[in-house]
Amino acid sequence: MSAAQWTSLMPNDLLARLERLRINPQKRKTNRTQGEHLSGKGGTSIEFSDYRDYVAGDDLRYVDWNVFSRLNQPYLKLYAHEEEMQVPILLDASTSMNFEGKFDLARQIAAAFGMAGLTSVEKVSVYSCAQVGQAPAIFPGTRGRAAVKRFMAFLEGLQPGGAFPIDAAIEDVLQRRRGRGVAVVISDFLTFGDVGKAFNKLHGSGLEVFAIQILAPSERNPEMSGDFRFVDSESGQTLDISSVGELVSLYQAHRQALEDHLAGECQKRNGRFLSLTSDQPIRSVVFDELVRKGWLK
């Protein structure tokens, strides 16, 4: 890393461009606490929102006296409320992500969302889940540009390893935090558990699901033939398969079915889903996928 390079995760120019991007949720899910996101409800920002009748107890500072002078009726002037949006980034750091640059891309994507969130004064947190029973590595909710350096350093320090199904990881993380916003889930989603149930809990806790699946090239297009004994990287279980070449088409069908299933589960909860291959450059991911599809704007 050159001295001028902020982070090893992505070049500075990309970081600079990310500074100008904001996370764009489909639904406005923010916290009551003041933040950068305008609430639909009345607030204290300078942006006018609406009028309403004055009722006893209202703050007289918000009465529009110009209107009162013309109509002799007190009307309360409402301003848009800027609320805080939390962006918990849930990073799958299990062993299955430690293949063919999957975890590297996952960290880069997390960095991209973190950069966009921090510079937009969102409360960005990171939960790196590696092993069941162990507390995830947590970057606590932080906002502001000042935290970028620390945020990047946290991501750079993450190492994958362990067995932690993503559905279990989601439930574990939800027990550790509160707040509404956008939950960015970066995983390969190769879990035997019920992802839909986990997404339900995310949705129920006021988080819009941004699910990003990262598969290795060998997972997306396995080019193998012959007999193999496959070993699960997390569980160590084995599976003997003869004539793998003949089963590739069936594998592709199941992989596509998994993607369709995940996309469906996200859509049902007004979330988003994106499937990437780990050999895609982060620049392409950001601008050709996330920006083009409206995840960032």
Binding site: A216, G226, R229
Partner: peptide
């Protein structure tokens, strides 16, 4: 002798075998 190969997850292959 089978070629032993570590893969991220057996999920998809188990589904393939079950299906086949």
């Amino acid at each position: 002798k089978r070629t032993q190969k570590e893969i991220p997850s057996l999920l998809l292959w188990q589904q393939v075998i079950a299906d086949q």
